[in-house]
Nucleic acid binder design. Structure first.
Length: 641
RNA sequence: CGGGGCGUAGCUCAGCCUGGCUAGAGCGCUUGGUUCGGGACCAAGAGGUCGCAGGUUCGAAUCCUGUCGCCCCGACCA
């Protein structure tokens, strides 16, 4: 009896052991299978493998499309982002990213990360919450002013929500790096920034909270910094190209960041808040710093010009009003702008048809603290009210634009209410301490490089690279020991990308009147399966099969998995087609009445027409989508359904 | 911050000037039905502290005061 029980137990044990073995074997094969798929994938350089997301049914996600445009949207990208259900506003300048919008944003994040890593930068994460003391150390607490979001914590300490992170990275470096052997190094993060913008606008293009990729390079010397800068510059080009953007690189002002050189990456678009000057020869610059033409010299008729003569110009304080009152052209006027720098007043002169560029003034004066004077200061230093200032008889320093120095005579303010002077002559009636390039460039100015006509266009700033030098490492004492054993401040560069802006900039240029046309690389999904009338068993069955087959398929060239969205809603065909065009998924497979003949249609969002493919075998549909994903496909002559 | 404008249903808006029944329309939403390849139709329904607070008045979405929010135009930036 005992023996029997014993044997029985043994048998049991054996059985279980075998079963376990079998299971293990199965697991092993499964892993092998998965691994083989993965290794197939790894043939491709990491640059093209973005990330695969699971397929999705429309009814199981949140895509709240809008038929009507919300009233507060002004620019194309903003309208489209709202209408296609990408974002929703929470408050002024803050937005919720809904599933579709977040997926696109994430695609950009992955591309940026991939290229930064490829360029040898190291990803870190710094806190958005920062002690105000750090900012006071560099003096930027004052420089940023009210743009910084700040608050007091329980202990009474002041904190800021970082608008950027130069101070914090430099603090890391000052604490952790002390030898030239540890350099060069570039640190970056993709993180949220806070700026209490004076005026948030254009949706996600200018918001109070946004995602920025910010990188910072540290080198022992300027030559090293130049190299680090170059690497980032190249990476930027790759990033924007991969995101499907058309962009220009222009020379820019380094503004609050400080430093020696900087370039902006601009996407030309009427929605852009920046103005850029560009020339066929490749020259490009932000209008703030674009070099104005060297004007000629005043002609020699000076002798024959009568002395300045006061003219009554009641109420005329704008250039136009003065022109009307004096019967002149704007180009006959000299505008006198009273400014202050470090509390001291001075006058800046530009021709009546030109605009003063404050950034140019800042660069020429080598003082960051330049502002237009208020009415009281103007009254005090000129003796006249705002709108009637002129250079004649002024005792404060005068700086003139080159074009002013080239005028033989001019109409100027009389420094008295309702009075202007005519026949004011340069170097006879008024003089300038310096003649500089101070005016904003205008459309048609000759190119400073080649002399041809330049054009002024709007641009969206998606990236900005700066050669900072030692501004921050000096201020924060981020010193390193050189080979010779000498302590020197690290030479820095900093590099920003507006991640949200990339998405918006992309929509500005990749859309038509029906909706978005996502570039493949950042499309929230690659393929949309549109089922017309799912109540028909044939449609339902074919859709399901296609959805599954496509979800398992890969782009043969990149190895990327197809990301598939299935419009399985029970709504009318019209609604589905309109929404499909609106959300702009690059490829659409329409499962509808053609299934009766055993066919479906494959269509590209960007092109008219479609290809008809048999549903059986499904591999045919997959093939058609794979072909379409890779560029032009042969379309049948039939118009879009 | 200065100038202009707007807050009424999820969205687009009417009603306000000249105070007066239970505050409206279109779209969207729910249910049922007919439809079903480019935002269809019929029927029934849900949904509103009229931004908020105070005042005037017998009575306020409407008039007055304050306040908050939002948008647009100008000086900042990814």
């Amino acid at each position: 009896m005992l023996l029997f029980l014993w044997l029985w137990l043994w048998l049991w044990l054996w059985l279980w052991l075998w079963l376990l073995l079998l299971l293990l074997l199965l697991l092993f094969f499964l892993l092998l299978l998965l691994n083989s798929r993965h290794s197939r994938n790894s043939r491709f350089p990491p640059s093209v493998v973005v990330f695969a997301v699971p397929p999705m049914r429309w009814t199981q996600t949140l895509i709240p499309t809008l038929k009507e445009t919300p009233a507060d949207a002004e620019v194309v990208s903003h309208k489209l982002m709202l209408r296609a259900g990408l974002i929703r506003k929470l408050a002024s300048g803050t937005y919720n990213y809904l599933p579709l919008g977040f997926r696109a944003l994430n695609k950009v994040v992955h591309i940026v990360r991939d290229e930064m890593d490829r360029a040898g930068a190291n990803e870190i994460l710094m806190p958005a919450l920062q002690p105000v003391e750090l900012w006071k150390e560099t003096g930027r607490y004052e420089a940023f002013g009210p743009i910084m979001c700040q608050f007091q914590d329980r202990t009474g300490r002041m904190n800021v929500l970082g608008p950027t992170h130069e101070e914090v990275v430099t603090d890391i470096v000052r604490n952790e790096i002390n030898s030239y052997r540890q350099l060069p190094i570039t640190l970056y993060q993709i993180q949220v920034k806070f700026r209490d913008e004076i005026r948030p606008r254009f949706g996600v293009l200018r918001s109070r909270e946004f995602i920025m990729k910010d990188a910072y390079s540290f080198d022992v010397d300027t030559a090293g910094m130049d190299k680090s800068y170059e690497k980032m510059y190249e990476a930027y080009g790759r990033i924007f190209t991969r995101c499907g953007l058309v962009f220009r690189v222009v020379q820019a002002d380094s503004g609050l960041m400080g430093g020696s050189a900087s370039c902006e990456f601009m996407v030309p678009s009427p929605a852009g808040e920046d103005l850029i000057v560009s020339c066929e020869c490749g020259y490009g610059a932000n209008i703030e710093i674009a070099e104005g033409p060297v004007a000629g010299v005043a002609d020699s008729r000076v002798g024959s010009i009568p002395p300045p003569e006061p003219v009554s110009t009641p109420g005329s304080h704008t250039v136009e009003q003065v022109c009307r009152a004096m019967d002149g052209r704007p180009a006959d006027l000299v505008k006198t702008l009273i400014c202050t720098s470090g509390g001291k007043p001075f006058a800046a002169l530009v021709r009546g048809d030109h605009e003063l560029s404050i950034p140019k003034l800042i660069r020429s004066l080598k003082s960051a603290d330049v502002a237009l004077a208020d009415a009281a200061t103007i009254q005090r230093v000129t003796g006249g009210p705002l709108g009637f200032s002129g250079p004649v008889g002024l005792t404060i320093p005068i700086y003139a634009d080159r074009a002013v120095a080239a005028m033989s005579e001019a109409i100027v303010g009389g420094n008295r209410a309702d009075t202007h002077l005519r026949h004011a002559v340069w170097n006879r009636d008024y003089k300038a301490a310096e003649v500089w390039d101070l005016r904003m460039a205008v459309d048609g100015d000759p190119c400073p490089k080649c002399g041809r006509r330049t054009a002024v266009t709007h641009g969206i700033e998606v990236g900005h690279v700066f050669k900072l030098g030692t501004k921050y490492s000096d201020a924060l004492k981020a010193h390193i020991l050189t080979e010779a054993g000498k302590g020197i401040p690290a030479v820095m560069g900093c590099y920003g990308i507006g991640v949200n802006r990339i998405v918006a900039a992309c929509l500005e240029n990749a859309s038509d009147d029906r909706g978005i046309q996502w570039p493949w690389a950042i499309a929230p999904y690659h393929v949309l399966v549109t089922s017309v009338d799912l109540k028909k068993p044939k449609v339902a069955e074919a859709s399901q099969r296609i959805y599954e087959a496509l979800s398992a398929a890969r782009d043969p060239e990149t190895g990327e998995a197809f990301e598939v969205l299935w419009d399985d809603r029970d709504s009318q065909a019209g609604v589905k087609f309109k929404d499909a065009d609106l959300i702009g998924i690059p490829l659409r497979v329409t499962v509808g009445k053609a299934v009766e003949q055993g066919n479906v249609e494959v269509k590209s969002r960007k092109k008219e027409g479609f290809t008809t493919v048999p549903v059986d075998p499904v591999s045919k549909v997959v093939e058609a989508v794979q072909t379409a994903a890779r560029g032009p496909i042969i379309f049948s002559a039939a118009p879009a359904p």
